[in-house]
Design a protein around this nucleic acid. Structure first.
Lengths: 189, 189, 189, 189
DNA sequence: ATTTAAGCGAGACGGTACGTCTTGTCTTGAG
DNA sequence: CTCAAGACAAGACGTACCGTCTCGCTTAAAT
C-alpha cells in the first residue's frame, strides 16, 4: 500500500550507489565527496542528502553488495578446507577495490561512530557469523578440538587479515597457508 | 656553527607539537586541522606548513613520544612473562588517548601513503623490533620452540590488538591472558 | 455552471491568505517563502502554486483587505478636511503591519514586474482614485483653486508618504499637518 | 605604517566592485548573488565574504561612485535654476542603470536594516545636503521666501522622484518642469 | 451507480545560493 | 632565514527554497 507523494526515483537511487561505489573503489575516502558522487551520478546533491545522513552511511550502503558477494561455500568439502579456501578468497579480494573499500570503511569508522556501528553490523558481524558456522561445523566434524576458542580465533583471523590490508601488505597464497596453519595450528586433529 | 637568519623558534615548535597532540588525543583526526593546531598553539599556519609536509607527518611527530613512552622492560623476568606484561600495558594504553591516536594514525594512513610510511617506520617497526627481540630471547632461553614463526606471530599479535582497538572493543586483562595463550599456545615449552 | 471535479477548498484558501499575511506583517518579504506559508497554513506547497503564480501575487492578495480597509470617509465634512483626516489615518497605518507590507510590496515590485503591475492596479490606483475624487470635490466646492494639478499633487502626496515609509521615518501628526499644508499650500481658497 | 600580512589585492577589490556594479546595473538585485559576482570578477567567493558583510554592503560600495558622479553645479547660475537643472539630470539618470540601482537599493533596504542605514548615510544624506545648500542659497539670494520649509520640501522632492522611479514611470522634461513648479510654487519670489 | 475531472496532501527531484570551513599557496614586515 | 599575520583561489560542507513533478486519495458533477 503505497504512501502519498512522488515515489522515490529508483534510477537516481541506483545511480548514486553506483557512483559512490566507483569513487570509493577507485581512490578510497579521499576522493569521496558528495559533490563528486552527485556529479558522477547525474543527480542533485540534495537528493543524496535526503537519503543518506553522512558519507559513511552512503559508503556503507554503496559497498555492501560488493563486500558480501564473494564467498560461495562448497558444502561437500571439509569445513577446515572451506575455511582455508575462504581465506584465499578474502586475500585475493583485498587486492582489488574491495580491499580499498574495507580499508576506507575502517578508516572512516574512526571519525564517525555511526559508520563504525553500521560497518560492524553490516559487514563484520555477517562475516563473523559465517566463519563461526564453519568453525562449529569443523568441531562437530572432529576436525578441530572441542575446546577451540572460536570467538578468540576469529578476533585473530580478522584482525590479522585487516592488519595486513591496512598496512598495505600483500597476502600471497603461501602466506595465507602459513597464516591458516598458525591460526588452527595444534588445534587441528 | 650557526647559519645566518632568525633561528627556529623552539617555543613555537613545542607549542605546535603539544597542540597537535592535545587535539588528536581529544577527538582524533576529525577535529585535527592545521587551523585549529595553529590557533591552539598561538602560531601562524605557515610556520606549521614550513616544517611539516602533511597532517600525517605532524600527527606522527606530535604523538611519537607518547606512543613509545609506555614500555619499560624488566630484564630480570623471563621473556615470555615480559611479553605478557607488555600486552597488558598496550591494552591499557589503548583505552586512553594513545588508543585514539593510534586508531587515527591508522585511519589517516588509508588516505595518505606518506603517513602510512611514516607510521610504519616510526611506530610499527620499532614496536615490532622490540617484540622481535623479546621473542628471540624467549627462543634462546628455551621458553619457545625453535621453529616458532616470529614474524607471523607478530602479524597476529599486532593485527589482533589493533583490530580490537579499531572496532572499539575493550581488552580486559583476562581477555589479554586468553589472547596470549592463543598466540603462544602450543609453542610454549 | 460548475465544472466537474472537487471544488476548491475554501478553508485552505483562507488559511493560505491568513498565513501569508501574518508572515508578511511580521517580517516583510525576508521571511516570506512558500514553504513557510504552506507550513503555517497547514497546506501543501503545490496548492499554493496552483493558485498563485508568484510570491508577489500571493502577497498582494493576502494583504489587499488589510490595505484598503482603513479609510471610511465622512461625507458631511469638507473635502479637504477629509483629505487631512485620511493622511493621518495612512500615517498611523504605516506604523504597523500595513506599513511593513506596503514597503515589502514596493520592494518586491523592483524584482518582479508582475508584482509591480498587480500592486499598481490593486492598491496604488484605487487609492489614487479615491483621493482624486476627494480633490475633485474640493475644487467643485471651491475649497481648492480650479487649476490645481490633481494628478501631480497625488504624485507628490503618495511619493512623499511612501518615501518616509521606505526610509523608516515616523510621520507624527504635526508632521502630517505640515505635510498637508505644503501640499495644498497656496492653492487653498 | 603597514601591518603584517599579505596586502589586500587591489586588483581583486576593483574587479569585485566592477562586477557587482555590472550585475546590479543590468538586472537589479534579482541577479545579484555573491556567486555571480565572484564568477564575473574571477575571484573566489571567500574573498568577497572577507570584505563585505552582506549583499547590501557590497551593492552600496559598488554603486556609490556612479550614483554621486552625475551632478556638477554651475556656480554662476541662479540657485533655483541650478535646482531645476539638477532635477532634469536626476530624471535622466534614473532612466538608466543608476535608476535601476537606486530602486534596487531601496528595495534591499526593506529587507536589511544595515543596507538602509548605509544607503541613507552614503547616498540619501549627501544628496540632501547638496540640495539643502542650494535651497539655502536661493533663500539668501531672495529667490525663495524666507519661511520656505527646506527639509519638508526635500522630503517632497526626493519622495516624489523616487516614487516615480519605483513605479516605473518615466519623468520627461516637461513633467520635471511641472514638478519643479509645484514644489517651489508660490514660494518663488 | 459509475465515470470523469479537478483539488489536495505528501513528498521526491534537479537546481541555485547561501554562509562557513579548511587547504595549500602567496606576500609582506618585523625579528 | 624565521615567523606572525593574513590575503587568496579552490572547493566541500550542510541548509534553505525554488519550481516542477509524480502519486494516491477525496469530492462532486456528469453520465
Amino acid at each position: 500500500m503505497a504512501v502519498a507523494g512522488r515515489p522515490r526515483s529508483d534510477e537516481s537511487h541506483k545511480a548514486i550507489l553506483q557512483a559512490a561505489y566507483e569513487l570509493l573503489a577507485e581512490s578510497g575516502f579521499a576522493a569521496f565527496t558528495f559533490e563528486r558522487v552527485a556529479a558522477l551520478a547525474g543527480v542533485s546533491r540534495s537528493t543524496i542528502y535526503r537519503w543518506w545522513p553522512s558519507k559513511g552511511a552512503l559508503a556503507m550502503e554503496s559497498t555492501l553488495g560488493a563486500l558480501n558477494a564473494a564467498y560461495q561455500p562448497d558444502p561437500a568439502a571439509p569445513a577446515l578446507e572451506q575455511l582455508r579456501t575462504r581465506f584465499h578468497i578474502v586475500a585475493r579480494a583485498f587486492k582489488g577495490p574491495t580491499g580499498r573499500i574495507v580499508a576506507s570503511m575502517l578508516a572512516e569508522s574512526q571519525r564517525d561512530p555511526e559508520t563504525l556501528a553500521a560497518f560492524t553490523q553490516n559487514y563484520i558481524e555477517p562475516a563473523r557469523a559465517s566463519m563461526r558456522e564453519l568453525l562449529r561445523r569443523a568441531i562437530a566434524a572432529g576436525e578441530l578440538r572441542a575446546d577451540f576458542d572460536i570467538e578468540l580465533a576469529m578476533d585473530f583471523a580478522f584482525g590479522t587479515l585487516y592488519h595486513q590490508l591496512l598496512l598495505g601488505r600483500s597476502m600471497e597464497p603461501d602466506w595465507i597457508e602459513r597464516f591458516a596453519d598458525f591460526l588452527l595450528g595444534a588445534s587441528q586433529l
